[in-house]
Computed example of a mutant assay.
Amino acid sequence: MSRKIISFQIPKSSKEFVRFQVDAGKHFYDKLHQHPQWQLTLIVEGKGQLMVGDYLGRFEPGDMFLFSANMPHVFRSDAEYFDPNTDKQSLGHTLFFDFEALGKGMIEVEEFAGLNQWLQQTKGCFAIQGSTKKNIKKNLMDFSGLKGLKKILTALEILNVLQESQELTALNRLIPQKDFTESEGKRMGQVMSFILSQSQNQISLSEVADVANLSKEAFCRFFKERTGKTFTEFLTQVRIHQACQLLQESEWSISQIAYQSGFQNLSYFNRAFKKVQGETPKVFRGRLTQVTQH
């Protein structure tokens, strides 16, 4: 049985170990997908929500992420990037590593033993920070001009930096034990696209179950097994992330932001925000204002 999520093939030769790709446009590819290659992505321009496995969080310029093989993910650009009249742009630099292209003989070479062990132990999505990010960014920005052995050596240098780093922050709590089937991936992609695009509106369980073409009971099981969260928990988290962005970037009142993010009740918004963020919206905004002023 096919275990591929939504059809998504990296445009590369089957013999190519590393592929450099620039994603440039109004918004990033907005379908949930996975692929057998490892992925290292630097966000140069653009903001939005990153969903990978059971993790949901924000991405913005300067962020760098590493995904191990077959991690379902999507960089969902904010709504303003889908506005045909906007002049906002999204830009990402990505390396895809295809370890299968090296062949079993290569990976079993003694010098690759440490790397191979690291690959077996490193599963999920990671945010890359500090000097690790700085060092890799320099190599990444120059990568497009590399060919042949220089390309391979630079790729191995980047992997060596990652392998030795203590600055990789794991973002997933739940690592899937098996890949999505193609039908599961397509269904999950449709559900996520619907939730992320409609989160500011009232969404009922019946509506989202209909999108998945499942009964409410079957949908709840399907969603919890694949995200580690209930539909309500996930939707609340999406809305809180939207509220965080508005608290940072708008001058709207907290009640306006609550309503704009999909909350109909201000006291519930305050409670939910504190549960997810560990502080109230007022404290969150005040702390950011102090950081900006300093």
Rank of each mutant, 00 (worst) to 15 (best):
257 I>H: 04
147 K>G: 11
259 Y>F: 15
234 F>G: 00
80 E>L: 15
45 E>I: 09
147 K>D: 09
144 S>T: 13
56 L>S: 01
68 S>K: 01
215 S>Q: 10
143 F>P: 02
127 A>P: 00
196 L>H: 11
174 L>N: 00
122 T>R: 07
159 L>N: 05
102 L>R: 02
256 Q>I: 05
184 E>L: 00
165 S>W: 04
110 E>F: 11
236 T>D: 08
28 F>W: 00
60 E>G: 09
132 T>D: 06
249 E>C: 07
63 D>G: 01
134 K>L: 08
249 E>F: 13
188 M>Y: 03
100 E>C: 01
41 T>S: 09
60 E>M: 12
43 I>P: 00
187 R>H: 03
67 F>T: 05
269 F>H: 10
291 V>T: 08
202 Q>Y: 06
248 Q>M: 12
249 E>K: 09
69 A>L: 05
5 I>Q: 06
69 A>Q: 12
40 L>H: 07
71 M>I: 04
200 Q>P: 00
153 L>Y: 00
37 Q>I: 04
62 G>L: 04
103 G>W: 03
60 E>V: 10
271 R>S: 14
151 K>D: 06
61 P>Q: 05
144 S>E: 15
273 F>E: 01
280 T>R: 11
3 R>V: 01
85 N>I: 04
53 G>D: 00
92 G>L: 09
83 D>C: 05
275 K>S: 12
285 R>C: 09
156 L>K: 14
47 K>S: 12
69 A>C: 07
133 K>R: 09
21 Q>Y: 11
206 S>E: 13
27 H>C: 05
43 I>R: 04
208 V>M: 07
36 P>K: 14
249 E>P: 06
135 N>R: 12
178 K>A: 03
225 E>R: 13
286 G>A: 12
77 S>R: 06
184 E>I: 01
117 Q>H: 12
127 A>C: 07
141 M>L: 10
232 T>D: 09
170 A>P: 02
6 I>A: 12
66 L>K: 03
126 F>M: 08
176 P>R: 13
257 I>D: 01
29 Y>I: 15
78 D>P: 00
40 L>S: 03
181 T>P: 02
92 G>A: 11
95 L>Y: 06
172 N>Q: 07
124 G>T: 04
175 I>T: 03
7 S>L: 14
36 P>I: 11
106 M>N: 04
32 L>W: 08
30 D>Y: 13
139 N>I: 00
251 E>G: 04
60 E>P: 00
5 I>Y: 14
7 S>C: 04
105 G>R: 07
267 S>Q: 09
223 F>L: 00
37 Q>M: 13
241 H>W: 12
116 N>S: 09
7 S>R: 07
26 K>R: 15
275 K>R: 13
228 G>R: 00
126 F>L: 06
183 S>Y: 10
128 I>L: 12
165 S>C: 02
268 Y>P: 02
52 V>I: 06
